[in-house]
Design a protein around this nucleic acid. Structure first.
Length: 272
DNA sequence: ATAGATTCCTGGCTGC
DNA sequence: TGCAGCCAGGAATCTA
C-alpha cells in the first residue's frame, strides 16, 4: 500500500528520467482509471513536455509544459514505472502506458484498479488534494499542532491520523508503526491524548517516515518503486502485519483488532 | 457538523 | 487437491 515514503521513492526515481521528455502517445487500456473525459485528457497530455515531477501527500504530480498537471494516485496497488528503450514490458496488470521519446515508456500498472489519473489546471479541482494537511516532515507539523488537532476530537487517534486533512501521507502501516513507537494505543480517543504524548507522537511519526524513506518504503505485498524494485522497511516493522507474533520490545503477543474499518496492530503491554 | 459505514476491485489465503 | 468465501484498504459517497 503506497503511503508517503513509497510515493516519494517513486517520485525520486521518476523525476530524472521524465523531466524534459515529451509524451508522444497514450494507450488507455482501462478507461475508468482516467478521471477526465478521455478526449480532453489526450488533448492536454499528448505532445506535452514533462517539466517537473513532485509529490504532495500520496499524490504524484506530473507538471506539463502547458501549465496543466497530471495527478496520479496509486491507492492500493497502483505502480508508476519508467521503462527505458529496448526494455520489454512484462506488466501483467498494465492499465495505461505513455510513449515517451526514443522508445522509452511510462507505465501505470494496477492490480485492484483503485488508482486514478487526472489532468487538472488548479489543485482545487481535486478537493482531497487541495485540503491536505501538513507534510509530516515539514516544520509546520509539530507537537503543538498535533495536540490542537487531537484535543478537539472524540474519535480514535488511529482514525484521526488516517485523516489526510490533518496530516498528509500516512496510511495504515505508518499509523500503526508510529503509535507503537509513541507507546500510544490506537483506540485512545483524540481528546484523551496529553500534550506530552502528542509531542512524542509527532516525533515518532517524523522518525518512522524518515527511516522508511531511507529504506525505500515498505513492500508488504505489491509495492514497487519507479524502477520496479521493492522497498526494505518491511524488515523494520514492529507491529504491522505481526498479529499474534511476539512484540519485539516485550515479547507479549501483538493484538490485531479493527478500528475505523482498518486492520490495527498494537502491543497491549507497550502501548497505553 | 461530525463521525461511522459502505463501496469500489482482484489476488492470496483459509478452511472444509 | 479443489474451491467457496473471506480479507486487504484509500478515499468518495452515503447514513446517522
Amino acid at each position: 500500500m503506497p503511503e508517503l515514503p513509497e510515493v516519494e521513492s517513486v517520485v525520486q526515481d521518476l523525476r530524472p528520467e521524465l523531466i524534459g521528455k515529451i509524451i508522444r502517445n497514450v494507450d488507455i487500456l482501462l478507461p475508468r482509471i482516467i478521471q477526465n473525459d478521455a478526449e480532453y485528457f489526450l488533448q492536454n497530455v499528448v505532445c506535452q513536455e514533462i517539466v517537473d515531477v513532485c509529490r504532495r501527500g500520496k499524490y504524484i504530480l506530473i507538471v506539463l509544459k502547458n501549465g496543466k498537471t497530471m495527478v496520479v494516485h496509486l491507492r492500493m496497488t497502483g505502480a508508476l514505472m519508467f521503462l527505458p528503450k529496448h526494455q520489454k514490458n512484462e506488466e501483467t496488470h498494465l492499465r495505461v502506458s505513455f510513449d515517451l521519446d526514443e522508445g522509452s515508456q511510462l507505465l501505470y500498472s494496477d492490480t485492484r484498479t483503485f488508482g486514478t489519473i487526472q489532468i487538472i489546471s488548479e489543485q482545487s479541482e481535486i478537493p482531497s488534494l487541495f485540503s491536505l494537511g501538513p507534510e509530516p516532515l515539514e516544520d509546520s507539523f509539530h507537537g503543538d499542532y498535533l495536540y490542537s488537532q487531537l484535543h478537539s476530537r472524540q474519535s480514535s487517534v488511529k482514525s484521526i491520523l488516517l485523516n489526510q486533512e490533518i496530516i498528509a501521507g500516512l496510511g495504515n502501516i505508518y499509523v500503526d508503526e508510529s503509535l507503537f513507537r509513541a507507546k500510544i494505543r490506537p483506540s485512545r480517543l483524540g481528546g484523551t491524548i496529553k500534550k506530552s504524548e502528542a509531542v512524542r507522537l509527532s516525533l515518532a511519526i517524523k522518525e518512522t517516515i524518515s527511516q522508511a524513506l531511507g529504506e525505500g518504503g515498505t513492500t508488504f505485498r505489491d509495492y514497487r518503486n519507479g524502477k520496479g524494485e521493492k522497498g526494505s522497511f518491511q524488515d523494520h516493522l514492529y507491529v504491522y502485519g505481526r498479529g499474534n507474533q511476539p512484540c519485539i520490545k516485550c515479547g507479549s503477543p501483538i493484538s490485531k483488532i479493527k478500528i475505523a474499518g482498518r486492520g490495527t496492530h498494537y502491543c497491549v503491554k507497550c502501548q497505553k
